[in-house]
Write a protein that binds this DNA or RNA. Structure first.
Lengths: 197, 197
DNA sequence: CGTCGAATTGATGTCATTCAACTACAGTGG
DNA sequence: CCACTGTAGTTGAATGACATCAATTCGACG
């Protein structure tokens, strides 16, 4: 364990192995089986999660009981509920392992310590936030402007490797359509694909 | 001019008037007439904008020429394209004044200087970012889960004072529906309202 | 082999869009 | 002061995209 996170930080934030060693006591490593929950709706999110191995998802449940997937997190991604964490409010999100996963948990203490240790880490952290915002805005734009088919194509383009690992009904949920609709979209695309050849 | 921004910063980030005075040379004040553009698609966003008075909007245009409103910014709000600004990429957004507006423009230099001057400002800035993310996530959730009517109700609840100032077709665009649909939704709501009394 | 959830398919329903006509109103110029 | 014009908003009818419901197939796993 703990192989990936330090490599990731070294690469992305220029945090050296030595610096990482001093921070390591602030980290918690944990394994989750597929289906296990890292956070339940109503609880306050106390940690950020970094995925070393596996695949996680966060989702909400609406009044009619339907799930809506907010985010997927494969290897080298973060997940959590910043809103709940930062403003100390009960979360509206559930976070669950889709595959058996190895996860690094850390809190604000770790981040502050890391930012003290390395100014480069501060920049890196800022960059992560900015990038997150950019992604969310992109997704909003897609939801506002694109049809089911376009959304799916955009998803495949952006997360091609994930499309194999994520069950189709979850992709549908992420795109804001029903599994049936996604199935039909894919059928239609396959048909057109065929005609081209 | 310059009355509002310093008061806002004093209140929200505990930046004192004296501290503000040292930062003031880094600010640009400008007036925009209704309809004027602060940023055009394709340009890199070089400034953040703080609205002292008036109302702005940011929006994208899709391939079919339709506008999709990403954000409104009334008094005491920020607007800009963080993605473009931070990653130095051409923006996909247009930013335009809806009303005649007084705006404060500032760049990363101002932010860095302010964060140097006051640690409280650093926290405040972080808070802004986190809050922005939370808002965006909320909106995604709404777009994924709610009908036209629910989206509109949610909008009115959150931005009641703005519903008077923003033309209806722009609200429709923000909600991801057509102006006609919004008109019908409102009619339906009014009808139900009436029956209650 | 039997079971259970995922995925597909078909029939039907619903919500929102599209297109078009019409009203209301503000701004412009004669 | 009034016609002319353009834009916002409303309304109706037809259409379309996606949802819903139900039945069936597929595939993984015990």
């Amino acid at each position: 364990m703990a192989q990936k996170f330090d490599e990731y930080l070294a690469e992305k934030s220029s945090l050296t192995k030595e610096e990482f060693e001093t921070l390591k006591p602030l980290l918690t490593y944990r394994h989750y089986e597929a289906g296990e929950f890292l956070l339940l709706e109503g609880d306050v999110c106390r940690y950020h999660f970094f995925v070393e191995k596996g695949l996680l998802r966060s989702y909400t449940i609406d009044e009619s009981g339907k799930e809506h997937i907010i985010q997927f997190a494969p290897e080298n991604w973060y997940i959590g509920d910043r809103g709940s964490y930062y403003f100390d409010e009960p979360s509206t999100l559930n976070i669950q392992a889709i595959e058996d996963s190895d996860v690094v948990m850390f809190d604000q203490g770790f981040l502050e310590q890391a930012m003290c240790t390395s100014p480069a880490f501060t920049n890196f952290n800022e960059r992560l936030l900015q990038n997150h915002i950019r992604q969310l805005q992109n997704r909003i734009n897609l939801l506002l402007s694109a049809s089911a088919e376009k959304r799916y194509l955009s998803f495949v383009e952006t997360y091609y490797d994930l499309t194999m690992r994520i069950p189709q009904w979850m992709i549908a949920s992420y795109l804001g359509i029903t599994p049936e609709s996604l199935s039909r979209v894919r059928k239609e695309l396959a048909k057109r694909e065929q005609k081209l050849s």
